[in-house]
């Protein structure tokens, strides 16, 4: 294991209790998550496995403070996300969370370095420092020769590498990856997972991957199964 320094050994890094999410968009309320409770310690690598529509992405969004639960609560390092203001939540995402999405979600108008340095710029890291971090990370993910390329000029695997580099630029303690291999062929997907796992170990970050793929889940230390919005 990597050299971890959790702020408080007795408190889990991430804790969710009785987490539920219901959408009220149609005629019938749609319950996507129900009574989910998880504890994830600092440095853990957890896979959320389940079929499409099982609520994996929703759970990931709730854990990363991107969305608010309709029931239950999420604590990060002992702090309740529900008690935070919008700007405090933004600050939390900026400092502590790195998101990786299935569709990469890079900004098409920015090149690789600009995309990777963007979270640091958002966090008001000085330009030179942000750029240096981005270049280092892009080299680390094997894109040292593609620094000035835009997303449209990169393959799917390369775009996901850029997205992984971006998720790490603010040195977050929590990485949340939502079907990171979903849009990739199995060979490239395997490369991406190996890269992600390697980087997590290097940096001692906590990684939560949502996936329907058992091969991806097999890399994790712990697998949480979700079926129809409930833990099994």
């Amino acid at each position: 294991m990597s050299e971890l320094t959790p702020t408080n050994a007795t408190i889990p890094l991430l804790r969710a209790v009785g987490l539920g999410k219901t959408y009220f968009t149609g005629e019938q309320p749609l319950e996507v998550l129900h009574g989910v409770g998880i504890e994830i310690s600092a440095g853990d690598f957890v896979a959320l496995r389940g079929a499409s529509g099982a609520g994996k992405s929703t759970l990931l969004h709730l854990l990363g403070g991107l969305d608010a639960p309709t029931a239950g609560e999420v604590w990060f390092d002992g702090q309740s996300l529900g008690a935070m203001s919008a700007s405090a939540l933004a600050q939390f995402r900026s400092t502590h969370v790195g998101f990786i999405f299935q569709a990469y979600h890079l900004l098409p108008d920015l090149d690789a370095v600009e995309n990777v340095s963007l979270p640091a710029r958002v966090a008001r890291v000085a330009f030179d420092e942000a750029e240096a971090r981005a270049v280092d990370l892009l080299k680390r993910v094997g894109l040292g020769s593609r620094l000035g390329h835009r997303p449209a000029q990169l393959s799917g695997g390369e775009q996901q590498r850029v997205a992984i580099a971006r998720s790490l630029v603010n040195r977050p303690r929590l990485l949340l990856a939502d079907e990171p291999t979903g849009n990739l062929d199995s060979h490239t997907g395997e490369e991406i997972i190996r890269l992600l796992v390697g980087l997590r170990e290097e940096r001692g970050a906590t990684l939560v991957i949502a996936t329907h793929d058992t091969r991806v889940a097999a890399h994790a230390q712990r697998v949480i199964e979700l079926v129809d919005g409930r833990m099994r």
């Binding site: 990363g64 991107l66 919008a86 700007s87 933004a90 600050q91 995402r93 900026s94 400092t95 969370v97 998101f99 999405f101 979600h105 900004l107 963007l118 979270p119 958002v122 966090a123 971006r166 603010n170």
Partner: peptide
């Protein structure tokens, strides 16, 4: 709209 969502996921505040 989607890029606004990305910016927020990356930690941008409403003001930013």
């Amino acid at each position: 709209t989607r890029e606004i969502g990305i910016l927020k996921a990356l930690g941008a505040t409403n003001g930013q």
